[in-house]
Design a protein around this nucleic acid. Structure first.
Length: 925
RNA sequence: GCCCGGAUGGUGGAACUGGUAGACACGCAGGACUUAAAAUCCUGUUCGCCUAAAAGCGAGUGCGGGUUCGAUUCCCGCUCCGGGCACCA
């Protein structure tokens, strides 16, 4: 029988589904192993060719681990809430759930055709009420928690309230917003509203007015990681800053732990570095500057944050962000007009414009002066948009001698630039280093700057004008979206105070609405729902949660996906603990991958799960780019010239559908048929064929370079697709998709099939004893594959399968003992063909998935003689064959006495013989 | 500007801690089988010199230096490409 991949693959995919071969049970004697792929958003265009790359790699690992005796959890699901389905709903009126459902069906069909060993009984969808019930439940826990810095973990809000009742907040050390100090008596005197307003400063999920990234076209707020270059990541629409009342997640409470724990997880250094930068820890000091004369008497201080308190004597002016709350009160009458004009200008400038011209210096003088805390000198207070309202205190002490931006600003507005570093030229630029010796700096004079930093903080604290502080760039995460297709908040309002629903009321189902747009008054779509209120007529929250809510904990749900009493049972979370290998694209570095760590730590603090990191090891599969093909039309004609000859003509490059190009050669007939405009096209060929040019670009329909996995499977089968995707190159490397080499893999599988068949393609294996070279070929492979799996070097494994099969073919080996083991080793990569041959070998059908993996035996690799490569002076190489069991001294003599080698000595004796692992590698003459 | 990652034949890529560079595959060239094609199989394929051929010789892992008996691998200085961050005080 010939290798018929179509029937073989259909048979086994059906078998696995029917038998639930890959269903994982919680518990049992085997060690557990949890392999997780980042779940996809089920977009309308189905799986793109980058998706299977990661899924295949994780599937190979899962199957390998199963064969190695692990209890493997390998689930899949869908990140099903999201913008495209909603936008489609706005255009067509079709409910996003309907679109999503049909997209999921397409995804599932595509995934099934690849032969992936998912446990579908644990499938999750974030938009499923059975799932988002628990997203809402977790939100309620966030709402009822605060972060205690003394215990360094989240605690129930009740412990905070009882502390308030006993002692007020004087002794509380919490991750919180700006609060004033109050006593227990004052707390008891607060109204209900006042109490709640105060608690909002402590809750881990809280409401606040804040500047947010507002995208008018999308009609919603976006998180920082959803904005790039002032445009929305999705859609590319402009984003502006807007003050809005929003739900926030107090992720900043976890900044230090999110940073510190990066050291303990086996994640790519690039991802960790991105998270470190995103968290942006900087050590420095808060310093208070007194104002010379308050225009009104109230604000007598400006607080700044600096990482270089050592340079404080070089501070010649202060700069506030234009949005700083003191700007208005600071401005003198004489400067009012200028300042107002500047504030207006800064406000109207979008983030994008602001970033576009970093070099342009702008600002305005407020007219007020502050006093230098050490010298008492008068220093002017300016405003400028190079100071950001959202970082630190929104105010800086400007040290033109030590900071490039301050330097430019001082130059532009002709402010003094006093030197603070010895022997450093600051006529052209600031000196931002830390190695110079301080001058003109009072008590710091003579110290090197890196020492002066600590000394300055000491003095600042002693004087009571400030204190050392660690500042983070990370900001609390905006958690409200003005959208329909997301999780409703389990929140209602009574007298303007937010309350969470009782857990028994969960899930709070997403209501039906007539349209998926905001209301005429600008309220989110949920405001359109009838009776969007509690039984007591209290209004429900109309915002929904952002896309990352569900994905921040979904990996836990897989552990016990059908539980309707808890998000996952204690037994399940204790057994599966955390993901052993997490695989996905690097684009989630500062979004999902940070949030999922955050939620994990929170649930750990509450004692709900036993681990504080979601995934032990993370691998990023590289992006798959497109490989576009081009034809070259001679300008003004309908004649196309082959790539190698195009420079002889004046041509235009035109994208051509890669489906009619093979190995860069164009199918000219189909080209004429497919493009009616070119029906009469002429071709100038080289070597009798038309060669196309190519370029690596993003994969897109308009570039005619999209490759659909279904098409590959149709033509070559899933096993070939699986192996070819791995063969393409290192998993973590980005690379263009190129179908050119797929024939090689396909040929390999046919050769493999033939090992089990005779020349007439009848199944035939012999029970002969394997020959030493056959065992050697097999065991070389067994060792290699295990090493490669450890290093996630799947591409070299594919090569090694080819080598092994080539050697067995050359040895005309059809022996059962060899083939039995070979089938098991290859089964992770090409499971369908292996299941089929496994059955043909007389094994229980389907038992391959849990067969026992062959044990590597070094003895089979032993050789009796060895071909020595020896270099002379590190250059010339000679190969000499010697028996392996020769004692090393005799060997050395023999080798040096060899005639071939003697020729290089020209009668001289070798000066030095280099021996590595008992073998001569180099001789110096 | 700052921080990561990379550069190896015509192409994708091998080479674990310094020890036979180019495994494996594609492509290409030649050959076998065939009426023919497909499929399959065999041979060759880093470049240059030399040779009828074999053998032989020389160069070679982006560029320039260095360490070493020996460097794709380690160190220093560049060039180019990819990714991330970017007025964060």
């Amino acid at each position: 029988m010939d290798y018929n991949f179509r029937s073989v693959e259909k048979k086994w995919q059906g078998f696995w589904a029917e038998q639930q071969t890959f269903k994982a049970e919680t518990g049992g004697g085997k060690p557990k192993y949890y392999v997780l792929d980042m779940f996809p958003y089920p977009s309308g265009s189905g799986l793109h060719v980058g998706h299977p790359l990661g899924y295949i790699a994780s599937d190979i690992l899962s199957r390998f681990k199963r064969l190695k005796g692990f209890n493997v959890l390998h689930p899949m699901g869908y990140d099903a809430f999201g913008l495209p389905a909603e936008q489609y709903a706005i255009q067509t009126g079709q409910h996003p759930a309907v679109t999503t459902e049909s997209n999921i069906r397409t995804f599932r069909r595509q995934l099934d055709h690849i032969g992936l060993s998912f446990d579908w009984s644990r499938e999750v969808r974030t938009s499923d009420p059975g799932f988002y019930k628990w997203t809402q439940w977790i939100f309620i826990r966030f709402f009822h928690s605060w972060y205690n810095r003394k215990t360094d973990k989240a605690e129930a809000i009740e412990s905070l309230i009882s502390e308030f009742e006993r002692n007020g907040n004087a002794n509380v050390n919490a991750a919180s917003g700006e609060t004033h100090v109050f006593t227990a008596e004052e707390w008891k005197g607060f109204s209900e509203q006042e109490k709640e307003a105060m608690l909002q400063h402590y809750r881990l999920a809280y409401l606040a007015d804040a500047y947010v990234n507002w995208c008018p076209q999308l009609g919603t707020v976006l998180a920082n990681d959803e904005v790039q270059d002032g445009l929305s990541v999705r859609g590319g629409y402009p984003v502006e800053r807007k003050l809005m009342r929003q739900w926030f997640m107090r992720i900043t409470a976890y900044a230090e732990r999110l940073l510190r724990d990066l050291d303990d997880i086996d994640w790519p250094e690039a991802i960790k570095e991105m998270q470190r930068n995103w968290i942006g820890r900087s050590e420095g000091a808060m310093v208070r500057f007194e104002l010379e004369t308050g225009p009104s008497d109230e604000p007598a201080l400006i607080e700044v944050f600096t990482t270089r308190p050592d340079t404080i004597f070089g501070c010649t002016f202060l700069v506030l962000a234009p949005e700083h709350e003191l700007v208005n009160r600071m401005t003198t009458d004489g400067q009012r007009e200028e300042v107002a004009a500047y504030v207006k200008l800064a406000k109207n400038r979008s983030e994008r414009d602001r970033m576009a011209d970093v070099k342009t210096v702008s600002g305005a003088f407020t007219g007020s002066y502050a006093l230098h805390p050490f010298t008492g000198e008068k220093i002017p207070v300016w405003i400028a948009d190079y100071v950001l309202a959202g970082y630190g205190t929104g105010a800086v002490m400007a040290v033109p001698a030590g900071d490039e931006r301050d330097f430019r600003f001082a130059r532009h507005f002709k402010l003094p630039v006093p030197a603070i570093a010895k022997d450093v030229d600051i006529s052209e630029e600031a000196y931002a280093g830390k190695d110079a010796i301080m001058i003109n700096s009072g008590f710091l004079d003579g110290l090197p700057m890196y020492q002066a930093i600590g000394r300055a903080v000491e003095e600042i604290e002693k004087k009571g004008i400030g204190k050392g502080k660690i500042q983070y760039r990370l900001r609390d995460a905006a958690f409200s979206r003005q959208r329909y297709w997301g999780e409703p908040f389990p929140v209602y309002y009574k007298n303007g105070i937010p309350h969470t629903l009782d857990e028994s009321a969960l899930p709070l189902l997403l209501p039906e609405v007539d349209k998926y747009l905001p209301t005429e008054s600008g309220e989110p779509p949920l405001a359109r729902a009838k009776d969007w209120q509690t039984a007591e007529n209290d209004p429900l929250e109309t915002n929904t949660m952002p896309g990352w809510a569900g994905s921040s904990w979904y990996y836990l749900r897989y552990m016990d996906a059908r539980n309707d009493q808890e998000f996952a049972s204690r037994e399940a979370v204790d057994y599966w603990e955390q993901v052993d290998l997490y695989l996905g694209g690097p684009e989630h570095a500062t979004g999902h991958l940070l949030y999922v760590r955050f939620w994990t730590k929170f649930l750990f603090d509450l004692g709900r799960i036993p681990v504080h990191e979601p995934a032990k090891k993370l691998i990023n599969q590289g992006m798959i780019q497109g490989r576009s093909s081009f034809v070259y039309r001679i300008k003004g004609t309908n004649t196309f010239v082959s790539y190698g000859l195009k420079d002889q003509y004046d041509t235009t490059a035109i994208h051509v559908d890669i489906n009619i190009v093979q190995n860069d050669v164009l199918d000219t007939e189909r080209f004429r048929v497919v493009n009616p405009d070119y029906a009469n096209a002429e071709f100038i060929l080289e070597d009798g064929s038309y060669h196309c040019g190519h370029e690596v670009e993003k994969m897109s329909k308009s570039r005619f370079n999209v490759v659909n996995p279904d098409d590959i499977i149709e033509q070559y089968g899933a096993d070939t697709l699986r192996m070819y995707e791995m063969f393409l190159g290192p998993l973590e490397q980005s690379k263009p998709w190129n179908t050119n080499g797929i024939e090689g893999v396909f040929k390999f599988l046919r050769k493999f099939w033939k090992l089990f068949h005779d020349d007439e393609l009848r199944f035939r294996v012999s029970d002969e004893k394997p020959a030493p070279e056959e065992l050697k070929a097999l065991h070389k492979l067994i060792r290699k594959v295990e090493e490669d799996i450890d290093r996630f070097s799947f591409n070299t494994s594919v090569s090694n399968f080819m080598i092994c099969v080539n050697e067995l073919t050359a040895a005309n080996c059809h022996k059962r003992a060899i083939l039995h083991d070979l089938v098991i080793v290859l089964a992770s990569y090409a499971p369908h063909i292996c299941e089929e041959l496994w059955e043909m070998l007389g094994n229980e059908p389907g038992s391959l998935s849990h067969a026992s993996y062959p044990v590597f035996n070094e003895a089979f690799l032993k050789e009796d003689s060895f071909e020595y490569p020896i270099s002379v002076n590190g250059k010339v190489r000679i190969k000499i064959n010697f028996p392996l069991d020769m004692p090393s001294e005799q060997l050395e003599q023999e080798v040096l006495g060899t005639e071939t080698l003697q020729r290089y000595f020209e009668g001289k004796t070798p000066k030095k013989v280099i021996v590595v692992k008992g073998r001569i590698v180099n001789v110096v003459v």
